[in-house]
Simulated scan of single mutants.
Amino acid sequence: MLFGSIEARDDEVTCAVGDGQINIKDKIEIPLTTPEQTLKSIVEYFKNFNEVKAIGVSSFGPIELRTYSPKYGYIIDTSRKGWSNFNLLGTLQNYLHVPMSFTTDVNSAAYGEYIDSILQDNPVLSLAYITFGKGVGAGIIDNGEFIGYNGSPEIGHIIPKRHPDDLVFKGVCPYQGDCLEGLVSEPAIQARMGKSYKEISMFDPVWDIVAYYIAQATIQATLITRPKKIILGGKIINEVEIKKVRAQFEKLFNGYIDVGNLENYIQMPSHSNRKLAIIGNLSLAKKKFYTEETFND
């Protein structure tokens, strides 16, 4: 018996299959072009695996996650040409005819962290997974379930306290300006510095400012959801930056709640985002299959 994974992100789609023990057996990267061409390639890939019993699907957003909505499974408004108001889940189900789970790309990676901790015999039953890249996304797991009835958490749009050396920059979020995403995302750093984050030395003071804002997000996640662990991922997070975040967290939080050793509490992902998303989607597919099988019985 096999299960499948489909993760759509930035400019490509990762498709994979794995067994019931969540061992990845095969995977492929497909360019994200038009919906028609991309979906054709996805369907052709899965036609090679007749034993796939269910598929976990995760996607860039915004997507409709409310199962009671007539647009459940849709990609809503997106800057990606041709993908706005596209029925991703329904189209896949129409061609592949297997049960499918559906969630955000960040949620699938968060679930992958949760499942991987169980597979490693070190279960983390409650965690917050926050990614920092072109945007800021979050997936939060509590006792093995996603937090968020009407959608996934939008921690990227909290309004952090401004750094005293960063009172002029207005932020880049088209909705709120200086929300977390408007201050620390890749486009925000580009707007601040006039160059890509890749070109900026880790000794530049801007990374202390970014860490100050990210630390506030980890504090809010700590106070609201009380997770066992917070995972920070995405392209702007590295070993140097996460140390800065821990230092800011310690200073700003001032020991209000004991979260233990900060190196254990605030960590980078255990695997690449792609691998975690596959692990998460395969596990969600397996859960979907057995849930529907039990219900149908």
Rank of each mutant, 00 (worst) to 15 (best):
G171S: 05
L223K: 06
Y74M: 03
G139C: 09
Y197Q: 05
P164D: 09
F249C: 10
G182H: 08
M202P: 00
F169Y: 15
T33C: 01
G90W: 02
L180C: 09
I257D: 08
V43D: 03
Y45S: 07
D121W: 03
L96W: 09
M100G: 09
L65I: 12
D142N: 08
I24N: 02
A285N: 03
I214Y: 01
I214C: 08
V184W: 03
G148N: 10
L39E: 09
L232Q: 01
R274I: 14
E239R: 14
E186K: 14
G148C: 07
S283F: 03
S79Q: 11
N296R: 13
G233Y: 07
S41M: 13
E7Y: 11
I155K: 02
G137Q: 09
D208Q: 08
I266K: 00
E186N: 14
V43E: 10
V57N: 01
F146N: 04
N50Q: 15
I209V: 15
K161L: 14
R226S: 14
V106F: 09
I266E: 00
G137H: 04
M268N: 01
A188M: 08
A191L: 08
I147R: 06
I28Y: 06
L252I: 12
D165P: 00
Y72N: 08
G56P: 09
Y256V: 12
E250M: 10
A16F: 10
E12D: 13
V57Q: 08
T14D: 02
I231E: 04
K47D: 12
N50W: 01
K244L: 14
A128M: 02
K47I: 02
D11V: 03
T104R: 13
V98P: 12
E154Y: 06
I200A: 05
P269K: 01
L88F: 14
N273S: 11
E239K: 15
K235E: 10
P164I: 13
A191M: 03
K195I: 00
G133P: 10
T225G: 00
L96S: 10
G73C: 09
S270Y: 00
V124N: 06
R9Q: 08
Q120C: 07
E145N: 14
K27W: 11
N281R: 05
M202R: 15
D105W: 13
C179K: 14
E7D: 15
L262P: 12
V136N: 07
G133S: 14
G18T: 06
I237K: 07
S270P: 03
E64W: 00
L180Y: 05
L32V: 05
I231G: 07
S270H: 07
T131R: 02
I75R: 05
D297R: 15
G151E: 07
A138E: 11
I147G: 01
F86Q: 08
K71Q: 14
I158N: 08
N281S: 13
T104A: 13
T67H: 12
E154R: 06
I230G: 02
K288Q: 15
Q267P: 03
I130D: 00
L92A: 05
S84F: 02
K134G: 15
I63L: 15
D258K: 11
Q37L: 11
P205G: 05
Q220A: 12
P160E: 06
S185C: 09
L232I: 03
T91L: 12
I30R: 12
Y175N: 05
F60D: 03
I230F: 08
R246L: 01
R162P: 10
I28C: 10
